[in-house]
Design a protein around this nucleic acid. Structure first.
Lengths: 215, 215
DNA sequence: GGTATTTCTGAACGTCGTTCATAATAAAAT
DNA sequence: ATTTTATTATGAACGACGTTCAGAAATACC
């Protein structure tokens, strides 16, 4: 029978050793995903690179999916930085274009890790943890800010819709192009095609005069 | 030592029995994917449903990936019909909107099979067979026709780029929304958001007067 | 019927994620 | 120090998976 008299730690948040192993496992998994993609990820290889036994992974994380979530959170953070840097100091419209181009560049330069952001599926029963969603939100918040600046009269909820639509459209163009599906937009035309497309959207949604299209 | 004196068939294209088994396997795989998704696909379940031994799958197809390609080709054909039906008799701009909405509806109503179109990855060494690419091309050809009608002066190659960009953007909006990633555009706003978005693109790219934006 | 050829079969193989009894280590109590 | 208790580490073992392949069964032609 286990007692807890307050002198041993109750949860996993206080162990520096455990955290160190977790970090080594995330590092190893990230390296492996960079080299072999999400489907090339192997628990045995990760633990070997991290310097622990196979079972150690399951002491540090619930399962392999949870480890992937941590790698993906890192990737989202780096994407977030790339976007923030690209739009810094720009006016809203220029910022929206900069976001699209930064997203495109990031996807190209971090192909395997970026793929994993979308290829990774968690089982139907499990749900995406809140801490991970916040990493996703950080990325899209830049779009929300620009839309808010362009259309201040838009209700908050509608701004989220517009931001999601804008972001998703750009993502779709990049994704289909890089995956070479359907016609496969050639990568060497990707930037100009996106720049043109963003121009369409901005002129279409805001009018040539930048007038506020409330609704 | 095997000889061939011309009295036995040389390749696999002439056997009705073999084709019947292939069809049963595709049917079984399709049913399984509908119910359990691509990741729920199991060679043992498929062959049991199709009424053959486990190894039979590997007589009919090279491997499981090849079988998935056949299911996906079917799905693309049904998507193609859905789009063709939706745009029939419409003017180019209305057709482009109809395509987007039909794509959205198809994705919602055939979620598991539609997911498999994009989730299925073939190994790096193998490449997508030409017969499969033609199924993909049929779907996007509708977009190409409408763009050709709207901008007849556009070079053929540029039309393909524009069609790919348009299709991919719509796909991205639908995909991110249905997967609930990032903010997750709520499904009940999906149609109106797409309709608005297409309006932006059409007015942005063609001008209010429908003038031809060459190049 | 006899023989060449194709098709079918399912046990067996290697690999995977995951589990868990056991060992090793660390901390607290005595 | 020694014992007790709690934590962490280990890797053999398990079940499920895709795939293979030697042999059985079926088929086609003489």
């Amino acid at each position: 029978m286990l007692r807890n008299n307050g002198k041993y730690r109750i949860n996993e948040t206080m162990s520096a050793k455990r955290d160190a192993l977790r970090m080594k496992l995330i590092d190893a998994a990230e390296q492996q995903m960079k080299a072999n993609g999400l489907t090339g990820l192997r628990a045995r290889d990760i633990t070997k690179d991290a310097g622990c036994a196979l079972g150690g992974l399951y002491n540090a994380f619930g399962d392999l999916n949870e480890l992937v979530l941590h790698v993906n959170a890192r990737t989202l953070d780096r994407l977030n930085v790339a976007i923030a840097t690209a739009r810094k100091g720009l006016a809203p419209k220029e910022s929206l274009l900069a976001i699209a181009l930064a997203y495109t560049r990031f996807a190209q330069e971090n192909r395997a890790l970026w793929d994993a952001l979308y290829d990774h599926k968690i089982p139907d029963d499990a749900e995406i943890p809140a801490w991970f969603r916040s990493h996703q939100s950080n990325v899209i918040s830049h779009v929300i800010h620009d839309i808010a600046a362009l259309q201040p009269s838009l209700p908050e909820k509608t701004r989220l819709l517009r931001a999601s639509t804008y972001f998703s459209a750009i993502h779709g163009i990049v994704a289909i192009s890089l995956q070479g599906r359907f016609l496969g937009l050639p990568a060497d035309h990707l930037y100009e095609e996106i720049e043109r497309f963003v121009g369409y959207i901005l002129s279409g949604s805001l009018g040539a005069s930048g007038k506020d299209l409330a609704d």
